[in-house]
Computed example of a mutant assay.
Amino acid sequence: MAFEVLDEHEQGELVRKWLRTNAMSIAIGITIGLLLIFGYKQWKARELRTHAEAALQFDAFVDAVDAKRSDDAKRIAEGLRKDYAKSAFSTFAAMRQAEVSVTDGDLKAAQADLDWANQSARNSVMKSLIALRQARLDLAEGKADAALAELDKVAKSDFPAIASELRGDALVKLGRSADARAAYAEALSNQDAQSPDRAFVEMKQADLPVSDAGVEKVAEKTKS
């Protein structure tokens, strides 16, 4: 016969022989597997603990900002950047600092905060939000072209109403009324009918000068 079918006893002997021969390899494999599982659980626990600590620090930062305790807010924000640089909370804090700096008229500090936030951001939505903040800052500095460049970085699905409104603002500064009108229309199409910002966008659109085509139509009506 080309081969013989092993009976149960013979099969058992082969298995025991294989186990004796490979006992060390099996033991090492099991040990490595257990260490990996333990290491993953430890890493996960550390991640959760770090996230909770960063969240508490961010809450303290917000409280300090709201209470106008500038020194405390700055100290906590610096701690977030140093100890929790990979956490989204450090990015949120930097963005909030930029907002406060703009309110205080310190655009240079606001720029530094936004630069740090952009470098630390870990996902595309956060990047889009930072680009919107940067566009606002550029507009505050009179840099309409730079604002448009920032808005081009915002994904179309991210904050479409805000992005279109800011685009309209930049186009107004550049004297491109027709394009601004279209941008404001796009913003309104992405806003809820009950949005409190809707009336403000409509007002911006209404304040735009009449386009050349519109002027010609008005002139024709006047002649007739």
Rank of each mutant, 00 (worst) to 15 (best):
R69V: 03
R69P: 00
R69G: 00
R69N: 14
R69M: 04
R69L: 08
S70P: 08
S70F: 12
S70W: 14
S70N: 13
S70A: 15
D71V: 15
D71Y: 10
D72T: 10
D72I: 00
D72H: 00
D72C: 08
A73N: 01
A73D: 07
A73K: 04
A73I: 02
A73F: 05
K74L: 14
K74S: 14
K74G: 09
K74V: 13
R75I: 02
R75F: 00
R75Y: 02
I76M: 01
I76R: 02
A77R: 01
A77E: 03
A77V: 00
A77H: 00
A77I: 01
A77K: 05
A77L: 01
A77Y: 05
E78P: 04
E78A: 14
G79N: 07
G79A: 05
G79R: 08
G79C: 04
G79D: 12
G79V: 02
G79K: 02
L80C: 09
L80E: 08
L80M: 10
L80V: 03
L80Y: 01
R81I: 08
R81E: 13
R81Q: 13
R81F: 06
R81P: 04
R81V: 09
K82R: 15
K82D: 13
K82C: 10
K82W: 09
D83N: 10
D83C: 01
Y84V: 05
Y84I: 00
Y84T: 01
A85Q: 09
A85R: 14
A85T: 11
A85W: 09
A85I: 11
A85F: 07
K86W: 03
S87D: 14
S87V: 03
S87K: 07
A88Y: 15
F89Y: 15
F89E: 10
F89R: 03
F89H: 07
F89W: 12
F89K: 05
S90K: 04
T91W: 05
T91Y: 04
F92M: 14
F92P: 05
F92W: 10
A93M: 10
A93Y: 06
A93G: 11
A94N: 06
A94I: 03
A94F: 05
A94M: 11
M95D: 09
M95F: 12
R96K: 12
R96V: 07
R96Q: 13
R96A: 02
R96D: 07
Q97P: 08
Q97K: 13
Q97A: 14
Q97W: 13
Q97V: 11
Q97R: 15
A98I: 04
A98R: 03
A98Y: 07
A98C: 10
A98P: 02
E99F: 08
E99W: 06
E99Y: 10
S101V: 06
S101Q: 11
S101I: 02
S101K: 09
